[in-house]
Amino acid sequence: MREVEEQLRSEVVRLFAEGAIDLFLGYSSSRVPLRSAACVLHDADGVARLVWNRTCTPNLAALLRELLRSPPGATGDAPPRIGLLAKGCVSRSLVTLMKANQISRESLLIIGVDCPGMIDRHKVAARVGGEIAAAIWSGDDLAVRATGSGEHILSAEDVLLDDCRTCAHPSAVLSDRFLGEPRAPRRDALDDPASSLTEAEPEERWSHFQGEVARCIRCYACREACPNCFCTECFADASDPRWIGVTTDETDLALFHLGRAFHQAGRCVSCGACVSACPLGIDLRMLYEKVNGDVKVRFGTDVGTSLDEPEPLCRFALEDDETFMTEPGKGGRGMGVR
């Protein structure tokens, strides 16, 4: 990653010099150990701040709409041309956003990279049992000093985000420039919806779900960190009609998370940005993997990998199996035409 980081910096300097971009959206170092920050550069001056490492968890595609809408310091009417760093999942988010007419291909200059997988800060915190006071990388090993519990040696593989563990497309699927060597899709991972919810008994699933969402403080970090959450007004915010209450009661929390999960079906690129964003470390992935996995199995889609293929839940074919409506309860499957 160190080499790619160097290449990235020189590439960004070149893009600004050529006038190819007005802004660059990437990651910069953070003063907090084991974290990176999203960063927006207006010129090549801040390029030394750019980093590419295993803590670059935010999905930068989530920041695009606001940047395109009201670019800081913009004077003209034309939307800025934005250069951005895209790991595999970010590139797939860009594809889904383009298909949903949220961003235009022309407004972006995509620098694709291969991603070795990001670390899950909540897993690290759970391992060390305290606040991370300092961290030093040595290859894929990580020495962490935690408040109250001293030093710990961890391997990146042990604390990888679950979504990165099962990622089928670690390399950007769409880019204008690619830094480093792209990796072929991991076909073995494609067949693994990997949901902790699928195998458990209903009561067990329900109690796991309830236990997790009970932690929620309704800060909506999961929603705002998600590129897919681009609704002008979220159902959770609507006041007329008010779909759900404002409280942290069991019902309101469950409704928010179930509603959001259903909206992710067939659209979630499994970037793990919501999992990283959640301050309370809620297992949000269980829901999205479940609904997304169902669409994947039934329609054979691979989210965000093709600009031409219509979204599975946005198309209709006469051959679609409708037995789920006509013969409910008989396990009608295979709604997809494949």
Binding site: A38, C39, E66, P72, G73, I217
Partner: peptide, 20 residues
């Protein structure tokens, strides 16, 4: 001042900072 635009460029508008 435009400094507010600059520092808010990467703010996604969630409520984590206020709720914690």
């Amino acid at each position: 001042n435009t400094v507010w635009d600059e520092i808010a460029a990467t703010c996604i508008g969630c409520g984590v900072c206020t709720y914690v």
